[in-house]
Design a protein around this nucleic acid. Structure first.
Length: 470
DNA sequence: CGTCTTTGACCAGCGC
DNA sequence: GCGCTGGTCAAAGACG
């Protein structure tokens, strides 16, 4: 897909490993994120295009005006892009769950982030956070699902253990079983109305949509034809997979065209029937760059570390949603999200309409310097994007972002006007931070996702089993 | 023994 | 219609 930028200047090794090795756990990540100075022409998303401007115009003109590549419904994006699009007031418990761990991580930062954490200390932290997560699990679920029908589904999903699902899928007529499993989540009872933004399991594969039964509502039919937004994260890592706090099971591996490195397919196993899947592949041009593409939304509570990553990616995805909305604003700083995710990066986020899915790419490989070296005060500003989808304040952020008619991480701000608008937007976000405590909570979670590798394995530890890379 | 990874095969979409 | 490609399945083997 896209090449990689420059060399390995200013690299930073972040030890995301939990120290709990062991087969089957998708953690143990040594993630040396190496942020480099961007080279605009060396990283390029395939088929990058002016996604928002076209879409905005066409929304006003009606769906008929859409080209197939741009027929993206707002609700479609909301259904599938957020890995864990928390709404409203679901963050208090998350915040609580993070507090202790954050303190410890802050301390660890002060002791020098360039060094790998002592494994024993990290184990202690992991165990501690794992206990917190286990204790908070029910509360997390209730708070996150509160107020919508998701609670019903969550309980239903939980009623089927991962083992049971696995056995079900492996039994007898596998095709039939899997189909029925999908239907269970897609029908009116447990599908659309249930997890409000949960995508069907087949959402990952457009091909699977063709297998769906014809007897569906018009909305469902439309959804089946909709393209699913994805969030791709590029990061320099020598580990086979970045740790995002979730449990993943590898279900396939393929050699992708034009890339000597195989592409691995994972699905979330933290809960039965979780539709979230991800692809992991190394960049063809730079083997040190790991490209992780997420799709779907978790239908279960997440540990803090996973929540953080989910918020980060879902916020990026939410931009697609925002971008589909009309806006009177013109071009703003095309790299605002980039800076929001990593403050010092000038070329991080790319929205690509490359077929068949609209994709937000968060490029963590090309920032000239790291936020981790900065003071805590400096790091508070950038992260709001990570929480953009999670809090009311984030809506402000998202609304602002939706004004972007061009959003390309490949180009520096095209004009002084862009920079100016970006700055004003930053002011808005700053106000949002102070106005919304939940925003701060999500902020902390996002910080954890980037710097707090210690908690990355919490989910796996808390779970009875995990998955790992080969 | 249970769970997970590996890997070849299968299926569907898409382009020619 | 055919071939290519991406995505998924599932049997077999590996591991703890």
């Amino acid at each position: 897909m896209d090449g990689s930028g420059g060399g390995n200047r200013g690299g930073l090794s972040l030890d995301f490993s939990t120290g709990v090795g062991g087969r089957g756990f998708a953690m143990g990540i040594d993630l040396p994120i190496n942020l480099t100075t961007p080279t605009d022409d060396s990283r390029r998303a395939v088929d990058e295009m002016d996604f928002f401007s076209q879409d905005k115009n066409r929304v006003k003109q009606g769906p008929e005006a859409h080209s197939p590549n741009l027929m993206i419904k707002k609700e479609d994006l909301s259904i599938n892009t957020g890995l864990h699009l928390l709404s409203g007031t679901g963050h208090s418990t998350v915040d609580d769950g993070l507090s202790l761990d954050d303190k410890e991580k802050d301390q660890a930062k002060s002791e020098g982030m360039d060094e790998k954490m002592d494994s024993s200390k990290q184990e202690e932290r992991d165990a501690k956070v794992a206990r917190q997560f286990m204790e908070l699990g029910p509360a997390l679920l209730s708070s996150e699902m509160d107020g919508d029908s998701s609670t019903e589904v969550a309980s239903q999903e939980r009623s089927l253990s991962p083992t049971a699902e696995y056995a079900l899928k492996r039994s007898g007529d596998a095709g039939k079983e899997i189909a029925s499993f999908d239907h269970e989540r897609e029908d009116g009872r447990s599908g659309r109305g249930v997890v409000s933004q949960m995508s069907p399991e087949r959402a990952w594969s457009p091909g699977k949509a063709a297998r769906s039964p014809p007897s569906r509502s018009s909305d469902q039919v439309q959804e089946a034809t909709m393209r699913k937004a994805r969030v791709s994260v590029r990061a320099r890592s020598e580990a086979p997979m970045i740790s995002d706090g979730c449990q993943w099971r590898k279900y396939g591996q393929k050699m992708a065209k034009g890339n000597p490195c195989p592409r691995a397919y994972y699905r979330c196993t933290m809960a039965a029937g979780c539709p979230v899947r991800k692809q992991v592949q190394r960049c063809a041009d730079d083997g040190t760059i790991l490209i992780t593409t997420y799709e779907g939304k978790h239908n279960h509570p997440l540990p803090p570390a996973a929540l953080a990553m989910a918020n980060t990616t879902s916020s990026a995805a939410s931009m697609l949603l925002s971008g589909s909305m009309p806006s009177a604003d013109g071009i703003i700083n095309p790299n605002f999200l980039a800076r929001a995710v990593l403050p010092c990066s000038s070329s991080v986020a790319t929205i690509s309409a490359s077929a068949p899915f609209p994709t937000v790419t968060l490029d963590l490989t090309n920032s000239p310097s790291l936020p981790f070296h900065k003071s805590p005060q400096e790091f508070q500003l950038p992260i709001p994007a990570a929480a953009a989808a999670a809090t009311p304040a984030a809506q402000i952020f998202g609304q602002s972002l939706c004004g972007q008619s061009r959003f390309s991480g490949l180009q520096p701000p095209s004009s002084a006007v862009d920079v100016q608008k970006g700055q004003s937007l930053a002011d808005t976000v700053s106000a949002a931070i102070t106005a919304d405590p939940n925003f701060t909570a999500a902020l902390a979670a996002a910080i954890t996702s980037i710097i707090g590798g210690g908690a990355a394995g919490v989910g796996q530890q808390a779970g009875s089993h995990g998955s790992g890379e080969q």
